[in-house]
Simulated scan of single mutants.
Amino acid sequence: MTVTIYDVAREAGVSMATVSRVVNNNPNVKPQTRKKVFEAIERLGYRPNAVARGLASKKTTTVGVVIPDISNAIFAEVARGIEDIANMYHYNIILCNADKRKEKEIRVINTLLEKQVDGLLFMGGVVTDEHMQAFQTATVPIVLCGTNVEGNTMAAVDIDHQQAAHDAVKLLLDKGHRRIGMISGNLQDPNNGFSRYNGYKNALEEAGVAFDESLVRIGNHRYESGIEAMKYFLELPERPTAIFSATDEMAIGAIHAAQDAGLAIPGDISVISVDNSRMASMVRPLLTTVAQPMYDIGAVSMRLLTKLMNKENVEKGKVTLMHEVIQRQSVAEV
């Protein structure tokens, strides 16, 4: 049978109100009484009912986190940052995988809100009108984590994706490359897709290099799409001397496809990407990439959410973190 607060009170010889004060860390309990209550809790194996406590306090100390793809190491690093700060401020998290599907994202958002979470962190790609409608009906704070929507007023933490892509392509241009291919994410994705695509185009324009649409292939962020894109580039009458990939995973697929075709990286073709996931330092040659501070994105997002949940003063609702070009071995001069 379930052990109740009444059972603990009877075992310890105190009132239920005293047990409640002990469980909720109320300082107005004598040390001797507190010790008796804890001993009774241990003997009986009592666990406080979090739902009942939440109803009483109108807080569940639980935060919902919507993650696009739990198998992606990039999002795992963000989740670690969230978890560490959540623990620091005594919040539990409910992590929900949405498989990068809009319908599932919206269903998960509504499910978490129905579970009376105190706040919500949303990691995703495209934020549609349906997403915004779900957010606007929420009665708890929401922070976009590694996601942003141009023109929206919601709290958000991210990097400047367009500038990150620009800096990656500029490195290639500075090394003398002029025929630069791009493996892009879905252009409906405002960050990993459209913003990085625009950064690529802007860097070329600044250098006086004409944009060539035939040098852009759309991938799906996965290794296999990087392989297919590189195969396409290698079959062109004049292949690119360098490839900019919107993500590390596609870049590694591109590297392997080139190597399978007997080409050397970076001797025959250079490759650069954005993310700086752990895979970037596992592939050979080591991948030159633009580092996103993924852990910090998660940590800062969670800290911002704690401030909003506790109604603390927030100077900036939108936080843009710095990125950094990490030069390794996959880019050479021409």
Rank of each mutant, 00 (worst) to 15 (best):
T2G: 06
T4A: 09
A9N: 09
R10L: 14
R10W: 00
V14H: 06
S15E: 11
S20K: 00
V22P: 01
V22A: 06
N26G: 10
N26W: 03
K30L: 15
P31V: 05
T33M: 12
K36H: 12
A40V: 10
A40S: 13
I41G: 00
E42N: 14
R43V: 12
Y46M: 04
T62Q: 13
V63S: 11
V63H: 06
G64S: 13
V65K: 07
D69T: 02
D69Y: 02
D69G: 04
S71I: 11
E77W: 01
V78E: 12
D84H: 13
H90F: 07
Y91N: 09
N92F: 10
N92W: 02
L95A: 11
L95V: 09
K100T: 08
I106E: 05
V108G: 03
I109V: 15
I109E: 10
T111A: 15
L112N: 10
K115F: 09
D118G: 12
G124D: 03
A138W: 09
A138H: 13
C145L: 10
G146N: 08
N148F: 14
G151S: 12
G151Y: 09
M154W: 15
M154R: 15
A155P: 14
A155K: 10
A156S: 15
V157K: 10
D158A: 09
I159N: 02
H161E: 13
Q162V: 04
A165T: 08
A165K: 02
D167N: 15
V169E: 02
L171N: 11
L172F: 06
L172R: 06
H177A: 06
S184P: 04
N186V: 05
D189Q: 09
N191L: 10
N192V: 02
G193Q: 01
R196M: 07
Y200F: 13
N202L: 09
V209L: 02
D212W: 00
S214M: 08
V216T: 03
N220K: 00
I227T: 10
M230G: 02
M230W: 06
K231G: 11
L234V: 11
L234I: 07
P237D: 14
P237K: 13
P240R: 10
P240K: 08
T241V: 08
F244S: 04
A246F: 07
E249A: 00
G253P: 05
G253H: 04
I265R: 07
G267Y: 01
D268H: 05
N276L: 00
S277M: 03
M279S: 12
A280R: 01
M282W: 13
M282V: 06
P285R: 02
L286M: 12
A291I: 00
Q292V: 05
I297Q: 04
G298V: 01
G298Q: 05
V300M: 04
M302A: 13
M302E: 08
L304N: 07
N310M: 08
G317H: 15
G317R: 15
H323M: 01
I326N: 00
S330P: 05
V331T: 13
A332C: 11
A332D: 13
V334P: 06
